[in-house]
Nucleic acid binder design. Structure first.
Lengths: 151, 151
DNA sequence: CTCCATCGTTGACGTCCTCCACGATAGCGA
DNA sequence: TCGCTATCGTGGAGGACGTCAACGATGGAG
């Protein structure tokens, strides 16, 4: 019988579990989004583009998604080529381009959302709704804390 | 004021938070492990090799880490080249190779563990110890459930 | 007007994911 | 015993992703 206090055993390590859980969910979600021609990455960007009425700068997109700005370029390129979003010039700053979802983008978002919800339900089936909420809260605090620490 | 029930808003999505948190922790941990010539991947494999007395087959390694077996080959190659683990033939099955940590591997593991613990403490600073334990439990259940579901 | 910061973009390089195929070995049924 | 099928480790290909450095265009402070 082996008893250890912290993340000494790999499968008790928060970091490992985080990576493992994320990998599982990403894989399942990517599979669910494949029929819509989306991946987790592009779907996330589409969501943000839909939820901001006036569009979101690529800078803010990168910040929120935790990505390098150079990756957002390709991400938005793909979405724009598919007619899901468009780049609009900002009225106040000619450097920034606001990414805003098109009607087609908003429509696809609705359909894709059903797919991801189904995948999430399957993957998170082992947890009760209350526990999922608890997990969400803890992760939110973790992310917020880490983001604050890197300022 | 916008109120939504579930993961409708991206930053309230469990999957997104999971990926985001994992990315943050992996980045920090990789930075902490860099001085030891390790990455999260190789460190995890080293841990497993240390914790199983008789060694672990690459198959089981892949299973536990959630990786494709072909990746484990390269992973173990790297660790073996660094003298941290060695491949031993299994007494019962000549196909399988047991990966077992060397003395140097066990020594490095100890030092590396201190680095990762420090990184974790920094990154998880926003959560109390009880909350970290809670998070660990929830993630463990999630991973176990998803693993059971894919059988 | 000048100097420096910021935004989007491009390029490069390495890591990681996913899948497919192969030789060697194991295990089972005829 | 002989095949058939499954499993283990390995190799290779192709795409996605992470990280960093540099550039032109623009904004803002002094």
């Amino acid at each position: 019988m082996e008893v250890r206090m912290d993340g000494t055993v790999l499968t008790d390590d928060v970091g490992f579990l985080l990576t493992r859980a994320s990998g599982l969910l990403v894989r399942a979600t990517n599979a669910a989004l494949a029929t819509h021609g989306l991946r987790v990455r592009s779907y996330s960007a589409l969501l943000l583009s839909c939820d901001s009425a006036e569009g979101m700068s690529q800078r803010d997109l990168a910040e929120t998604l935790g990505l390098d700005p150079s990756q957002v370029v390709l991400l938005v390129d793909g979405l724009a080529d598919a007619g899901l979003v468009e780049r609009r010039p900002s009225g106040t700053d000619r450097r920034t381009k606001l990414v805003v979802a098109t009607a087609a983008g908003r429509e696809l978002r609705r359909r894709a959302q059903r797919s991801t919800a189904a995948a999430h339900a399957t993957e998170l089936g082992g947890l009760s709704v209350a526990e999922q909420e608890q997990l969400k809260t803890l992760l939110g605090r973790l992310v917020a804390g880490a983001a604050a620490g890197s300022d």
